[in-house]
Design a protein around this nucleic acid. Sequence first.
DNA 1: CAGTGGTCTAGACCACTAC
DNA 2: TAGTGGTCTAGACCACTGA
Lengths: 255, 255
Amino acid sequence: MSIDPTDPRSPSRQIADDLRAAIEAKRIAAGEKLPSESELVEQYKTAPQTARKAIALLKNEGLVEGQRGRGVFVVQQPPMIRVGSDRYARHLRTAGKAPFQAEVELMGLKWRQEVIELAEVPAPVWVAEWFGIPEGTLVFVRRRRTWIEQTPTQLADSYYELETVAGTRIREEDTGPGGGYARLEERGFRLTRFREELETKMPTPTEVSALQLRAGVPVVHLHRIAFAGDRPVEVFQSIMAGDRHTFAYEFDAPE
Amino acid sequence: MSIDPTDPRSPSRQIADDLRAAIEAKRIAAGEKLPSESELVEQYKTAPQTARKAIALLKNEGLVEGQRGRGVFVVQQPPMIRVGSDRYARHLRTAGKAPFQAEVELMGLKWRQEVIELAEVPAPVWVAEWFGIPEGTLVFVRRRRTWIEQTPTQLADSYYELETVAGTRIREEDTGPGGGYARLEERGFRLTRFREELETKMPTPTEVSALQLRAGVPVVHLHRIAFAGDRPVEVFQSIMAGDRHTFAYEFDAPE
DNA sequence: CAGTGGTCTAGACCACTAC
DNA sequence: TAGTGGTCTAGACCACTGA
């Protein structure tokens, strides 16, 4: 392994490509250590900063992770949580499970929610649009962070019109068995339909620390609207760690 | 604006945070130029490499884009293509539109597909699993790249069992009006159900060049299985540019 | 031709780990 | 204490843009 000066790829790129190939061919397995910076310098006869840059490229792809004083290691992919369109099944709610909880417990994992904020706030534009109310009207928001085992995985905000949640446990820390959706149904909002929209992008630094994301891990922005008949009763936004979630939808062929 | 040595954030991070704030507050609008490297060096009284690193951080977030000889510019978000669960509607196929085509033309955009490979290949593991056949059995694959206007947006592979596509136009460059699904239905496979699975990750360098991705743009891996009754007739994989697609699913509340 | 970004070289200090 | 990664400083060359 050495650098080919006639290669149009820059030296740092060549080193990165070599290492990536080694990782993909499992010559360096998940959890194993990459050659150290000084070893790369010696192997490739290059400057330390060039070796560093090669490693930086791999970090930004989410393939490797540096640990100060120890080395750079091939990332162990964390277990994926499958988020499916069948998780809103009513039978789960009547069994006292909130949608996300059901999903996670199915995989034998421990689940925890941390309530960050319960407040009345002026409705953001897109929330107001779904509710069909003027922008800035007061709405109730539940902000929370979801943990699975020891890792945060999701930042979730649920918005409700004030009269929808007046006097319900949705305004309290603990919404009770079955979660918020169970409380809505008790209030007579029979949830009939859901709409979900997904986007992906790189996280902001705030998101990186709130979700303890490694470099090179994108996030998924999930928007959900829960309908009771034609009426949107909950508008939901979630930012989820991209390396810990897959999304599955199953549907019949529309006519 | 200057660097605070007591701040726990590193200088490059402080500069990046300042610039990001300016971008988010639209003090620097989309398409506008950031201060040049030398201007940053002067403003913050720092070394050029530190300013460079700050800019590199923003690039990896997909917020800015460097243009050699011109400057660093705030990224213009490209228009998003909405990929919805209603795009498989049969009435579109009978109208001669392939699913993706219908979606895109609805937005008034021009659409083009470039066939990369038509071949019989040994089935990859996950494809074999869905078809319920031994790994390595020969299957037919259509690999193609989809362009919208002047930009590539999707790398798509469709897998079929050999007997499913024998003697059909699915094996040819041009599948004819309504696309591959229309041909399957003509053959008697009435498509009744779809399953889609989504994941997101950072692209490989190969994907970066094939999709002409900017730094800091993740990709979405979409897997789809098309069922005729209980039988999977097409297994599909697509890698899509994360900054050009949103995904929308609408479904009734399961019982 | 001056200005700008992209990359490399060279050397330094710090924080942390493992022995 | 030696080895490792993380960051900064300093200086250089090249490729490209725009006046």
